[in-house]
Nucleic acid binder design. Sequence first.
DNA 1: GCAGAATATGAGCGATCACTCGTGTTCGCT
DNA 2: AGCGAACACGAGTGATCGCTCATATTCTGC
Lengths: 208, 208
Amino acid sequence: MARKPLTNPRKQASQARSRATVDVLIETTARILVREGFDRASTNRIAEQAGVSIGSLYQYFPGKDALVAAVIDRHREELGKVARSALLKASTQPLRQGIRTLVTAAVEAHRIDPRLHRVLAEQIPRTGRLEKVETFSRRNYALFKAYLERHSDELRTVDLELASFVCVTSVEALTHSAVLHNPAMLADDAALKTLIDETTRLIVGYLQ
Amino acid sequence: MARKPLTNPRKQASQARSRATVDVLIETTARILVREGFDRASTNRIAEQAGVSIGSLYQYFPGKDALVAAVIDRHREELGKVARSALLKASTQPLRQGIRTLVTAAVEAHRIDPRLHRVLAEQIPRTGRLEKVETFSRRNYALFKAYLERHSDELRTVDLELASFVCVTSVEALTHSAVLHNPAMLADDAALKTLIDETTRLIVGYLQ
DNA sequence: GCAGAATATGAGCGATCACTCGTGTTCGCT
DNA sequence: AGCGAACACGAGTGATCGCTCATATTCTGC
């Protein structure tokens, strides 16, 4: 009847009531991802556990992928805050100390919601509309490269583009792996300090 | 009727005919994973494309996971060969040269079947019986640690366990990311050499 | 208080999934 | 040649999936 898309591109929430519906759907999706895994996170189950009808779910999200993407975006927003504040702090510090600040922030960021982070990293198929995970890393390269440019007088002569790739990839892998697969490395403050010390040494040694 | 498990734990292939069936199933699974992705790799589709009945598939594999696990194992076997031969070569070389050998091998290993490697890394949910992916990395830590022990006179005083974690995780992440997300880094011999140079510098600088 | 827009509902459809089992075919062995 | 074991077959079952749409309820502006 109406020529407006009946169910397809989905409408945007405008009233307070519908915004609450959207929120509870995203939150429930995150909870199910953590508690039951990606496979069991069907739209029917999400709607049921959210206390929202399946019809309402499809009023705001075109499908499961969109729900998961919303969860990812929300999680990234958190990580982004930590990253931005660390970069701000590091920019006024000498290189060695700045790198340590950034490494510490990387560990912190991975500890925000480790169980969700793990699911996003290990169970979400990076395919279709979910493959933009990579663009997030690109932005990190760019931000770190800008940091290096501002401290280029403290570095050996390097290709900053390449150096950013090496540093960001290594730190991300080390913190990610430590948090998710080697919990012993964060068991106490001493272990945590050792991890940060070693990672900082790796990066500073490479850059200078 | 028979008290032997009728269809459950599945039998092992003994005749040449059935071994061929198993082989074509694994091969087809790998092909579908690469060409259509993990989601579309259903047991029905695998059997159909392999030219094997769905019943035969279930005679040898308890389910989709087992098929995928077999593909992973086969791929790992290939990687393992490269790793072993590189470690053998490196063990008789001085540290800087040995590390370079190992880094080169890491890049080589990632280039064996990059499309399959990508699918295994990005689309396979590491859950259930598929989570043993990590034990593979553990073995790499151990092998590299043994290498470091044999060259400990060339190193600064370090915790070899921790150093192995740092080195293996970094090199793996750098080569993985370069091969899968930054193809420009392997476009020509010069770029490839640069990547290997930088990675080697990172590791050697850290160890000495 | 009322009209129309926004929001919410859920039974149910068609597709696909993993997997079974009764039956037919081929093999190894004597 | 003949027998039992190994192997292969595929229609069919029940569960679950993503998703639709006709209908009901609630909100907003006047």
